[in-house]
């Protein structure tokens, strides 16, 4: 903003919201279809069986032996071993099973701060990932969290169910505080079946964003962090003597917003984003910064290229 604009009190125009907020927008759905096609092309031949469990099942790839216990399918007995060693062992195969994808969307008040761009962005990202997962016949579950699990969309599968997902996401409204630790504990307890957990959040958790990610890690989920950011959070339009009020906790603090103070805040904000990145890297948690100024389809493609969590 120029000095003249600042003198005259002109405000910068808000960042373009991109497409409409409507998740049922035909243009948005065409993009989702494109992303699904791209994901197939990238992961050609790996439509299923990307995730394997060591079960005596219908797989064809040998994995291991274990001792026979009554009730095991005798067709799985390894008679060759019995002939050689005289022990009844059961052949174990890696079973091909479809992937469980959990899309955890932070719907706290901070996600709707300002013009609500972060929550809109998170909804679009979740919609895209859900569509790709459904298109690849994975089981998709969408969960909205704040300081607890706010809403859960039951697990669904198949591309035809995308509208159910979209309807769920469309109904999310930002409210309440953020407590990812408690919310993830509840989530883990409610979802015993492990899988990928994509956490879409600004990670503005007063108790620390680490607790939520660690809760997923400790429960053997595979967490992916999509850190939703808005550059305007780092450059607030504040001047002079103001009382800062946290939009979630209501906590107040008097400050005199000077240029120097705002610069320090800007640095602190980026330090916080770096803290998140550093934590994820140290704990081998895939991490992506999803800034609202970057189109969501670009972010999804980047995620698809750099990771393989979508089969």
């Amino acid at each position: 903003m120029s000095l003249l604009d600042r003198i005259l009190g002109r405000r910068a125009a808000p960042a373009p919201a991109g497409a409409s907020d409507d998740l049922f927008d035909p243009a948005l759905q065409r993009k989702l279809e494109t992303l699904a096609l791209v994901s197939r092309r990238v992961f050609a031949g790996r439509m299923r069986a990307e995730r394997r469990t060591k079960k005596s099942g219908s797989g064809i790839e040998f994995a291991d032996h274990r001792a026979y216990v009554p009730g095991d399918d005798i067709r799985a007995l390894d008679w060759g071993v019995y002939q050689r060693f005289g022990r009844l062992l059961v052949r174990l195969y890696e079973e091909e099973e479809d992937l469980g994808i959990y899309l955890v969307v932070d719907a706290s008040a901070s996600m709707g701060f300002g013009d609500g761009q972060k929550l809109r962005h998170a909804r679009r990202l979740a919609a895209a990932l859900a569509y790709i997962g459904l298109a690849n016949l994975d089981r998709v579950t969408v969960v909205a969290v704040g300081d607890r699990v706010v809403r859960t969309m039951p697990t669904t599968r198949g591309k035809g169910r995308i509208f159910r997902v979209l309807h769920f996401l469309q109904g999310l409204e930002p409210s309440g505080a953020t407590d990812l630790g408690e919310a993830m504990k509840s989530f883990v307890a409610q979802h015993p079946r492990r899988g990928l957990v994509v956490l879409l959040s600004d990670l503005f958790d007063p108790a620390g964003f680490e607790r939520g990610i660690n809760a997923l890690r400790y429960a053997k989920f595979e967490p992916y962090v999509l850190h939703v950011t808005d550059a305007r959070d780092g450059r607030p339009e504040l001047r002079g003597d103001v009382r800062l009020i946290d939009c979630e906790t209501g906590e107040a603090r008097d400050v005199t917003a000077t240029s120097a103070l705002l610069d320090r805040y800007h640095a602190a904000y980026h330090a916080y984003v770096d803290d998140v990145r550093r934590f994820c890297v140290e704990h081998q948690v895939p991490h992506f910064v999803a800034d609202v100024s970057v189109p969501f389809d670009d972010i999804v493609l980047r995620v698809l290229r750099q990771s393989g969590f979508v089969s």
Binding site: F204, E248, R253, V255, Y265, A268
Partner: peptide, 29 residues
């Protein structure tokens, strides 16, 4: 007393880091 304008912020915790050094500038204010 100066009546301050209220301004919502998304995450006051980041401000806490910044305001730790604010007391030094109070006299200038």
């Amino acid at each position: 007393e100066l009546r301050r304008r209220s301004a919502l912020v998304p995450f006051a915790r980041i401000w806490e880091r910044v305001l730790a050094t604010r007391d030094a500038t109070r006299l200038f204010s």
